[in-house]
Design a protein around this nucleic acid. Structure first.
Lengths: 202, 202
DNA sequence: CCGCAAATCTGCGCGGCGCGCAATTTTTAA
DNA sequence: TTAAAAATTGCGCGCCGCGCAGATTTGCGG
């Protein structure tokens, strides 16, 4: 990757993190695009060269994470399908090195509450789901490679991908709904196990 | 339901149908809010009393349909869970009396193509998914009633609801991707059956 | 090290959107 | 019939997304 692309990636990340941080701190519509651009050290106009809306900037990190699941999945060709899926998901949603570098310039509890408010924002929810759907296509492709199906014609890979993203979304929502001490890791494994078991009544 | 609420429902429907029709005909950003309002015989300002964006107006019909699935589900307490789910979904996504009343002032193929373009619109995709998520909460509640769980604390109802909406979305996407003669009904039953079977490799 | 071409950033400006506010019209209930 | 409640409407503001064209930076061959 050349210097050029690396700088682009940096700017993407900087803008996204700035958008998240400011939104968590102040709330979605107390943040202007101008503020995000300034925080990332770039002109307002440039913001829209990278993202077509505030919401997209905020959802970018989610998109990235989910895309990495597909990537990771391709890197585990041997394992049984659902083992590979669970492993990939857990890997990407583990406490993150990047997240530790960037994150809360404030109290942890306060941060979590800010995130809760943020993801409740209607405009954001749509954008997050859209990011999930984008990743879903990649996951479907990865699954198709593995099981030897055609993503254009077969329903199966898309169903699996959809179920996986559904499990992820559900686990995260549950985690934010209940601020209990249940670790996300357990919620994710539970969810995926249940799905692989046909969602039989517990 | 009083006269008042009925008129509101009418206006909702009128605005939504107008938004859909115009968007299918001209494309998303060739339609101004003003146009939709005019087509529904209402002032532009009133549009925003009903919907907070063009996208929301267009997605309204989808939201309505999906909410009816939850409603129908509550009306089938006896059946085994997945039979009830499949039944409810098929009922709501069958060729629709309302859709036949309102719909294409143009060629059917042309209409389908317009719909394809419409749902490809990024802003719309997010809004449709959000509508699905809203309905998902209702479905989860309905499932919880049936299985005797607590939607606040249990993961299971949400997982089922998520899987159902995932199946619906996947089936619809597949239907639009392949313009084959495969009826949506079959795609929906296939998808739901596979999920209830634990998504085993076919 | 130089200079050129391509990619990127930036300032400007426009049209549309979402919504608060207050006045007006319509509906409901007494 | 009349008063209260609710819905519709017009007006106006601030922000947003983006096209355009000029300035700036980056990558590369000489």
């Amino acid at each position: 990757m050349g210097l050029r692309e690396r700088k682009k990636a940096q700017t993407h990340a900087a803008l996204s993190w700035a958008a998240i941080r400011l939104t968590v701190e102040r709330g979605f519509d107390q943040v202007k695009v101008e503020d995000i651009a300034e925080a990332a050290g770039v002109s307002p106009r440039t913001f829209n060269n990278y993202f077509s809306s505030k919401a997209e900037a905020i959802a970018f990190r989610h998109l990235d994470r989910c895309l990495r699941v597909a990537e990771e999945l391709r890197g585990r060709p041997g394992e049984p399908l659902w083992d590979a899926i669970t492993g990939s998901v857990l890997r990407q949603f583990a406490p993150d090195a990047e997240a530790i570098a960037h994150p809360p310039p404030v109290d942890a509890a306060q941060w979590t509450e800010g995130v809760r408010v943020m993801v409740a924002e209607p405009a954001l929810r749509g954008e997050m789901l859209r990011a999930g759907a984008t990743a879903e296509a990649e996951i479907a492709a990865a699954v198709a490679e593995r099981t030897g199906g055609d993503p254009e014609r077969d329903l199966y890979p898309h169903l699996v991908a959809s179920a996986v993203m559904g499990a992820v979304n559900t686990a995260i929502s549950h985690h934010l709904r209940i601020d209990a001490a249940v670790p996300v890791r357990r919620l994710l494994t539970d969810a995926l196990d249940r799905i692989a078991a046909g969602l039989a009544t517990p």
